[in-house]
Amino acid sequence: MDDAHHSLDFGRWAIGDRLGRGGTGTVHLAVDRVSAERYAVKFLRPGPDTGPDTGTAPGTPAADARVLRELRTAEALVHPHVVRAHTSGYVHGRYFLLMELCALGSLDQLVRRDGPMDPEAAVAMTLAVLGGLQYAHSAPLAVPDGDGGRIAVRGVVHRDVKPQNLLLTGSAAAPVVKIADFGLAKPYELAGASGVTHTGSSNGTPAFMPRQQVVNFKYAKPDVDVWAAAASLYFMLSGRTPRDFAAGHDPWLTVWNTAAVPLAARMPTVPPRLARIVDEALIDDPRIHFPTAAAFRTALEAW
């Protein structure tokens, strides 16, 4: 199906190679035929809460609600550290979202290629991410309600912050980080009310997820994004995930049953005070230590 995107009649945009694949769709290169400017275009697939197991078929209002929520959320969020959405639409039975192209790849690719980052550079990246999250958690939005209307809300929780979704643009000497892929984002004011996420469903990436999100994905609050940002900083500093995930073991049970390994045990060269802040940010039992992006930013800025 992905190869078929090359032959779609997109008029203004020529669709090129696939850049990535995620839980909610595939991303391709798109080139403006007139200006030659390059973009990224995401073709969205039906949501995880559709299909024979749920009795909800793609193309039904419930299926479209999840897709439309992603489109409208992406279009509404305008911030220097959030990937900019330019336009969206529906063609050949698929929804699409045209976005800015972050040509330098992801933080995940950067760390895997070059190794752990310098602490000051990693903290600077994290402060930028937290700025984007603080904005997203409070931005006024109008999201689809699943019945053809819209609901005014304030703020969404991303629910899948991780190094793979933190993209880099600008120059290699001075990269700018941007939060991508709000496919699992949901207005937390409406947690449990939209009918788009089924009770008990678990989405996202266990390695960058606090135990609260595993227990109650449907009712996730902004603090889960703060924890994930701290886990991403841990990865930038050490090249490892906060928890150890053994082969053959259920990763969701690992999140539930284990705590983050102290950062100093992974990377003894990290400044001790910074390591303590990161360790504090990764406390998630009985509650997440830093409840807001602003609180975590304040701690890192003090360092």
Rank of each mutant, 00 (worst) to 15 (best):
P291A: 02
T73C: 07
M267T: 14
Q164H: 15
L107C: 13
I283D: 01
P262L: 09
L167F: 07
D223C: 13
R21S: 15
P119Q: 04
G192A: 06
R38W: 03
D250C: 10
V226S: 02
M236S: 11
S201T: 14
Y39E: 09
R266Q: 11
E120I: 12
A74I: 10
A281L: 04
T126D: 07
E189F: 01
Y39K: 08
G16C: 10
T56A: 05
T197Q: 08
E120H: 07
Y234N: 04
C102Y: 09
V196A: 15
T241H: 06
W227V: 03
L168Q: 05
N165V: 02
L29Q: 10
R154S: 14
T60G: 04
A281G: 08
H6G: 12
Q213A: 08
S201A: 11
V161C: 10
P61R: 15
P48I: 02
L190N: 03
Q109G: 13
L104C: 05
H198A: 14
G22P: 11
F43P: 08
A30H: 07
H5A: 15
T24K: 09
G148M: 08
D114F: 05
A136E: 02
L110I: 01
G239T: 03
G55E: 03
A152T: 07
V226P: 02
P80Q: 13
G23H: 03
F182H: 00
T258K: 09
A229M: 03
V82F: 07
A76F: 05
R69G: 14
V78W: 00
Y90R: 12
V41E: 08
L77F: 03
R66Y: 01
L110H: 13
V153Q: 01
A295G: 11
T197I: 13
V255N: 10
A260V: 03
A207G: 13
M209T: 14
P187G: 08
D17E: 15
D250E: 11
Q213P: 00
M267P: 05
V196L: 11
V278C: 02
T197K: 08
R12W: 06
D145R: 07
D279C: 04
V143E: 01
A294T: 05
D9W: 07
Q134R: 15
D108R: 15
Q212H: 13
E280H: 14
E100R: 12
T26H: 12
R113Q: 14
R287I: 05
A4F: 05
P251N: 07
M117H: 02
G183I: 01
R12T: 13
L274N: 04
S194P: 00
G55D: 06
G20Q: 09
D223Y: 09
A185T: 12
D2F: 04
G239N: 06
E70A: 03
P163Y: 11
F96K: 05
A275L: 01
K218Y: 00
H79T: 02
D9L: 10
G93E: 05
M117R: 12
A185L: 03
L127T: 08
G16N: 10
L19K: 12
A30M: 10
A172I: 11
V156G: 03
I179G: 07
G55R: 04
V129H: 02
D244S: 14
G51H: 04
K186S: 12
L233Y: 01
D64M: 12
G131H: 04
R243N: 13
E37W: 10
G20Y: 12
M267D: 11
L184R: 04
L104I: 13
W227F: 14
A191L: 06
S232M: 08
D114V: 00
V196M: 05
